[in-house]
C-alpha cells in the first residue's frame, strides 16, 4: 500500500509529465490560435483599417451592422447552399458508396479506392483553374458536349445558384476521395455476418444501410460530416477567390470569403473580425454536436 504522501507525490509527478506532453502543442496553439482569436475579438469592437492611426472604438456597431446588412442574409443563404451541396457530395454520396463498395460488391472493388483518392492530391488553386476551363460554357469541353446534344449551357459564373454548384465541385473534387477512404475504413466496424444475415432475410439495401450500417459507423460519419462543413467552407475559399471574387453581386460569397473580403478588399478590419467571431460561434455549435455524438459513440462501443 502506498502512503498518502507517496500518492500525492506520484500524482504531482504525473501531472507535471502530462503537462510536458501537452506543452509543445499548447505553445503553438496559444501563439497562433488563441492569441489571434483574442486579438480578433478585440478588433471586432473597433472601426479601423489596420494601417490608419485612427482606430475608433465602436462597441457592438460592427456586429449590429453585420446583422442588419441585407448582404449578410445573402451570405448566410449562400453558405447554407454550399453546406447542402458539400454534405450531399462529400458526405452522403461517399457514405453510400462506401457501403456499396464494402457490402454489395465482391470482385474487383479494391481498385476504386486507389483511383478515387488520386484527385485528393490536387491543390485547390489548380483545381479552380482547371474547373473554370473545363466548365467554360462557350469554349470548354463541357460546353462542347452540351453543344453536341443541343443544350445551351448558361454562363455559370454569372448565374446565382449555379455558380455555387460549380465552385463546390472544386471542393468536392478535392475531398471526395479522402472522405470515401475514411468512410470505407469506418465500415470495418460493421460485422460482415450482420449484413449477410440481413441479406438472407431479403432486407432491401436501403434498410441495411440505414438500420445496420449507419448506427454502427456513426462516429466516423459524424467526424466526416463535421469536417465536410467546417473544412468544406474553407476549401471553397480558394476557388471563390480565383474564379469569381464573390460575384456576381455576392451570389458566390460565403461566410469565410466575406470575412476575407472585409479584411483585404474593403479593409474594414473590425467588420471582418466581427464576422469571424460570428462564424466561430456557429462552428462551436458543431463542436457541441461532435461532443454529443463522436465522444459518446466511443463509450457505447467499448
Amino acid at each position: 500500500m502506498k502512503s498518502a504522501d507517496d500518492q500525492s507525490a506520484y500524482r504531482r509527478r504525473e501531472r507535471r509529465l502530462a503537462f510536458l506532453f501537452v506543452l509543445p502543442s499548447l505553445a503553438v496553439f496559444i501563439l497562433f490560435m488563441f492569441y489571434p482569436l483574442l486579438y480578433t475579438l478585440y478588433l471586432s469592437f473597433f472601426k479601423w483599417n489596420m494601417v490608419s492611426p485612427k482606430m475608433k472604438f465602436v462597441a457592438l456597431d460592427n456586429y449590429v451592422n453585420l446583422l442588419t446588412d441585407p448582404v449578410t442574409v445573402t451570405i448566410a443563404e449562400n453558405t447554407l447552399l454550399y453546406i447542402v451541396i458539400l454534405v450531399l457530395f462529400n458526405f452522403l454520396l461517399p457514405y453510400v458508396l462506401a457501403f456499396v463498395n464494402t457490402f454489395l460488391m465482391k470482385k474487383g472493388k479494391y481498385i476504386y479506392k486507389t483511383l478515387l483518392f488520386s484527385s485528393s492530391l490536387i491543390a485547390l488553386v489548380v483545381g479552380a483553374i482547371l474547373f473554370q476551363w473545363i466548365f467554360n460554357p462557350v469554349s470548354g469541353p463541357v460546353g462542347a458536349i452540351a453543344d453536341a446534344v443541343g443544350v445551351a449551357l448558361p454562363a455559370w459564373s454569372k448565374t446565382p445558384g449555379l455558380v455555387i454548384l460549380v465552385i463546390s465541385l472544386v471542393a468536392v473534387y478535392k475531398a471526395f476521395g479522402y472522405n470515401f477512404l475514411i468512410l470505407l475504413s469506418g465500415m470495418n466496424s460493421v460485422p460482415e455476418e450482420l449484413i449477410e444475415a440481413a441479406k438472407l432475410e431479403k432486407a432491401p439495401n436501403s434498410n441495411i444501410f440505414t438500420k445496420i450500417v449507419v448506427p454502427l459507423t456513426s462516429s466516423t460519419a459524424v467526424y466526416i460530416l463535421i469536417m465536410t462543413i467546417v473544412q468544406g467552407l474553407q476549401y471553397v475559399f480558394t476557388p471563390i477567390k480565383v474564379l469569381t471574387q464573390g460575384g456576381p453581386n455576392d451570389a458566390s460569397s460565403n461566410i469565410i470569403y466575406q470575412g476575407y473580403d472585409y479584411a483585404f478588399t474593403f479593409y474594414e478590419t473590425g467588420m471582418s473580425a466581427a464576422l469571424a467571431i460570428i462564424t466561430m460561434l456557429i462552428f462551436l455549435v458543431l463542436l457541441y454536436l461532435e461532443f454529443r455524438f463522436v465522444e459518446k459513440g466511443v463509450y457505447y462501443e467499448n
Binding site: 462557350v138 469554349s139 454562363a155 474564379l243 469569381t244
Partner: peptide, 18 residues
C-alpha cells in the same frame, strides 16, 4: 453579346467563338 466572367470570356475569344 456574352455575359460571363473575364477569364472565360477572353478564353472564348481566343478559341474563335466571340
Amino acid at each position: 453579346a456574352l455575359h460571363i466572367a473575364a477569364d472565360e470570356g477572353i478564353a472564348s475569344f481566343y478559341s474563335g467563338k466571340v
